[in-house]
Design a binder for these strands. Structure first.
Lengths: 210, 210
DNA sequence: TTTTGTGAAGGAATTCACAGCA
DNA sequence: TGCTGTGAATTCCTTCACAAAA
């Protein structure tokens, strides 16, 4: 079977394209050119066209792309046109921020369970309505609630252990926000986010500016 | 002047390398090979050597890299060997999580001011000891406190406006956590983080797994 | 012997430039 | 005419493979 390799960066850009598309749709703009969309996202117009072309022909020559159609197509490609059921492990400040985040629910991500190893936290009710569960119930709840994605917001030294637990419980997609690289065997999908890296990037670049 | 271009990805990886180095240093390991370090970070050993070689010769042939020295060198390169003074704008859940984050202080990032446009929040004291200031005092405080980096954790529709304010007040590095691409003129450094993109990446990849 | 540092090779991703179509 | 879709060209990044050094 012939499969053209799709750059991972292209996938990330599709998500980026969807942001202005959403805004344009709301403000009633119905058609947009690759040129304009590229401008919004700070990329090259050819890049936009090529990224979209990996998945089909969504535009009309001489005209551009229909905003609504394109947004729908991108959602379909990214599989964000359906609801995803998540759980989160580690309810510190960051865990809190993520589980309560408005944007996520709007995007179709639904947190169905929140875990913390601190026995003092278990039983506590979060503003979103979820009750914090002890990690001992992880396996059981993941199965019962059909949870598909696990989000890790524990300290770094617990991250790999939690990831192993999640995978063992049947989850195959993990988002790790702790500043350590979690490893997974084949068949599992891991996104290591570590945004502290971005601070370091910033520091590097600023220190180069005269 | 001859400048070999250093890939942005190389900078991000330097930060990645520093994570296991820190841990190794604490556990008393004094020397590490590119092979081992690469394993920890899930990259190619030649990559590690090449990334480091952009900045100098830090290793000893036949031996490896001194953990302490290498960590120090990486910090120097990333300019995280000095203290950075930051402010944050938008004290919602995420802003809270970032300003309170332990890791940042350890890494030498010091938040000196927190702003929110909500007048009800102004005056409120955060657990870290900072008092939330109204955005109207942004310019004055940035100058008075010698703030160098601005972190944006507002809703997306306010992000660009806040960025403009920050730049106008004399800041030249911005970290934007809202899911929109903030643009800056030349001479300013911007990192658009948008980790909701990572959720979409994950959804895409999971939906491809059988 | 072992492991770094690096030129050369190879591979990927981006951009160009234009044919193709509305 | 105007803008997409795409092969070709280019640029950029990664990996190989080996000389150099401890």
């Amino acid at each position: 079977m012939k499969t053209i390799k799709i750059p991972d960066a292209a996938i990330a850009r599709l998500a980026l394209y969807s942001r202005p598309l959403r805004a344009l749709l709301e403000s009633g703009v119905s058609v947009i050119s690759s040129e304009k969309l590229a401008q919004f996202c700070g990329v090259n117009p050819a890049q936009v066209r090529k990224d979209l072309a990996y998945f089909g022909e969504f535009g009309v020559r001489g005209v551009g792309y229909d905003v609504g159609d394109l947004l729908r197509e991108i959602k379909k490609i990214l599989a964000t046109d359906k609801e995803w059921i998540l759980c989160i492990v580690g309810i510190g400040n960051l865990g809190h921020a993520i589980v309560e985040n408005e944007n996520f629910r709007k995007m179709g991500y639904r947190f169905a369970a929140a875990f913390d190893k601190d026995p003092k936290k278990a039983g506590e009710e979060l503003p979103c309505g979820l009750v914090i569960e002890p990690v001992s119930k992880l396996r059981e709840l993941i199965r019962a609630l059909h949870i598909q994605i696990g989000v890790i917001t524990t300290p770094p030294d617990a991250a790999q252990r939690v990831a192993d637990l999640l995978m063992d419980a049947g989850i195959n997609g993990i988002l790790n926000f702790s500043p350590t690289q979690v490893k997974t065997p084949k068949g599992y999908v891991i996104e290591n986010v570590d945004f502290t890296v971005r601070f370091e990037n910033l520091a590097y670049h600023i220190s180069k500016v005269p």
